Structures are given as C-alpha cells and as structure tokens.
Simulated assay, not measured.
Amino acid sequence: MLVWLLAFLRDHLPGFSVFKYVTFRAAMAAATAMILSLVVGPWVIETLKRLKLGQHIRAEGPEHHQVKAGTPTMGGVLVLGTILVSTLLWCELRSGHIWVALLSLLGFGMVGAFDDAQKLLKKQNLGLTSRQKMVLLTAISLLVAFLVLHFGLRGANTSQLSMPFFKRFQPDVGIFLVPWIWLVMVGTSNAVNLTDGLDGLAIGGTLVVAVTFVILAYVAGHYKISAYLMVPFVNGGSELAVFMGAMAGASLGFLWFNAHPAEVFMGDTGSLGLGGALATVAIMIKQELLLVIAGGVFVWEAVSVILQVSSFKLRGGKRIFRMAPFHHHLELGGLQETKVVIRLWITAIVCCMLALSSLKLR
C-alpha cells in the first residue's frame, strides 16, 4: 500500500527512491510489525483476559506447567494481524506470491483459531479431531498448490526440487509435486504447533527461521545473485523477503510478551498460521529442503512425537523419551524451562547457519 502511495514521490524526489528496494522494505516491514506488536500487545492481552480465553493445561503434561493454567491464549491473532498489516503496507501488492503467502498464513491461522475456540468453549484441552483438522489443512494446501502451479509462482522447471549442497542435482518429482506441497505445508504447520509447548520456544524458533528466509527469498528473486550461487531463480520471489521481514518483526514483538513467564500464548492460531506461511514461502522459492535444515528444531520435535507414538504402539507401551515432544523430555531430565528454550534457540541458530552455508557449499 505504501509502495503505491509513495510511487509519485519515489519517481520525482531522490530521497524517496529507497522505497523501491526490497532490502529497505523488508527492514521497514520488520520494524513496523515489531512496533505494532509492542503497542497493540497489551490491549490484545487484556482483551483475551476479559473474554476469559485462558489456556487449559493437559493433566498428563509436566506437573509444574499447571501454574500456567489460565494464561491468555489465541495470542496468535496478534502475530498474524501485525504480519498482515505490515505486509499490506510494505509489499508490492501486485505480486501473486504475496497474496498466496497471506492466504496460507490466514487460512491455516483460521483453522488454528477454530481449534482454539473449540478447546476453550468445551472447557478442556480438546478441540478439532485430528481428522477434522487434517481435512481443513489439506483443503487449504491443495488451494495453495493450485494457485502456485496455475500462476507459475515457482518459476521455470516447476516440478524440480533444489537440493542443498549440490550444484546441478535437481530431481524432478513430476506428478508428485502436489502431494509434495501438501506434505511440506501440513508437516511444517504441525511441527511448529508441536514445538509450541514452552514459553518463547516456538516463536523464537520462528524468528530465526524467518530471518533466514528473508535472505533466501531475496537471493531466489535476484537474477545475478541466484545465478552466482546456483540457486533456482524465481521471478518476483524477492518480494517474499518483505513478507518474511514482517514475520520476523511480528515474532520478535510477540516474544516480548511470550518470554518466560509468558503473559500470553499464541495457541494453534499462531503456530499453524506461521507454519503454513513458512512452508508456502519455501515452496514458492523452491527451498523446501532447506526449510527442513533451517527448521531442524521443528523437525526434530515432530519426529520425537512420531517415534514416541510408534514405540508405544509397536513395543507394548515402551517409550523412547520421558515425554514427547522432545522439549518435555529435556525438562523431565532436570533442565529448567528457560535453559531448554535457550539451548533449543541456539540449536535453531546453528541449523539456520548450516542452511545458509549450503548456498556457497555447492
């Protein structure tokens, strides 16, 4: 929106030419989202308290988490709202990439909000069933897949995948591209959702990954840099760097309130929305496999749950971890919540550094 409003000044006054640069707008989107979060956050938290939208804590979870019962949840509306406003202000709205990213963000977020609302209305930690949630997420994923393919938002050689650390090896998944998109979107959103179990853990991890994808999106949309680094070029993909900047800023702003002891939880509203948007951006710039590396903490948290459930069913009730997801295993091993969170943040930073290093190690 501001891109349009400032177009005249940008073309006629030298000082305003900075608004055409993606890097500047990405930084401004991040700053705008963060400031909005800090300004609006207290009002959102008070509103959630007034509406009595307090978190229900699972009885089977760590016992010391029971003190968190009643903490306002559905704070994801703050994260998604600030991303939306910042994106509309700083992005080039003629970009199809931006609208598809927003569709994923808000679509997955609405599923999460409905799930959160069901839990709160029923006064217990039961929302949508797994099947209901999967149907809704699948419908949105298929719509995103259709738009990405119909409008050519993955650039040339649409069905090829970019392989980290390899120069020219780009396998073509062909007709399996749509199932692949579904897997990445549903898998990522649920992985972020499973990670959201400690104060600041999921939003801090999202912040680190979002900053990484600001860089990756900019590289993918810059013809010369992408050619030099042998990264698939996606025409218009650099605009997604502005969107990811907004996500990074919103995450940082929300972390202010979600840091231990959390004043608000983002709930499924935030975790599903953020996960879906991260996956969609990765899909459009052909860096889904780098998302697996950059989001290594999210991946491991999801894998720990899969391993735990599989072991319990196949080995007669035997468990691999003290409790899943993995962050609860660490807690029950004697680590304080804040130490678990900070160590997993450090792990997330290392994973993102590894992902970025792959751009040169080809």
Rank of each mutant, 00 (worst) to 15 (best):
T338F: 02
A302C: 05
D11Q: 14
F321G: 03
H222N: 15
K313G: 06
V341C: 10
M266Y: 09
L103H: 03
R322Q: 15
V192P: 04
A29T: 07
L78P: 06
R94F: 09
R10V: 00
I35P: 08
K119H: 04
E60H: 06
P261Y: 01
M353I: 15
R50E: 13
A26G: 05
L120G: 01
S304V: 09
R168K: 05
W300G: 12
M34K: 01
E301H: 00
E263I: 01
L103I: 13
G155E: 01
A69P: 00
L330C: 07
L274Y: 05
A248F: 09
V299F: 14
R10H: 11
A202T: 09
V234W: 03
W90M: 11
G237Q: 02
A31V: 15
D196I: 09
G76N: 06
Y223W: 01
P232H: 04
I45R: 01
S37C: 15
L291I: 03
H150V: 01
I283D: 09
G155C: 04
K339H: 14
R319P: 08
A26E: 05
G237E: 08
G174F: 09
A227F: 07
L278N: 03
H97M: 01
V341I: 12
T280R: 04
P72L: 08
L359H: 04
I293A: 06
V292L: 14
R322K: 15
K133V: 03
I320W: 10
F312Q: 13
F233A: 07
L106K: 02
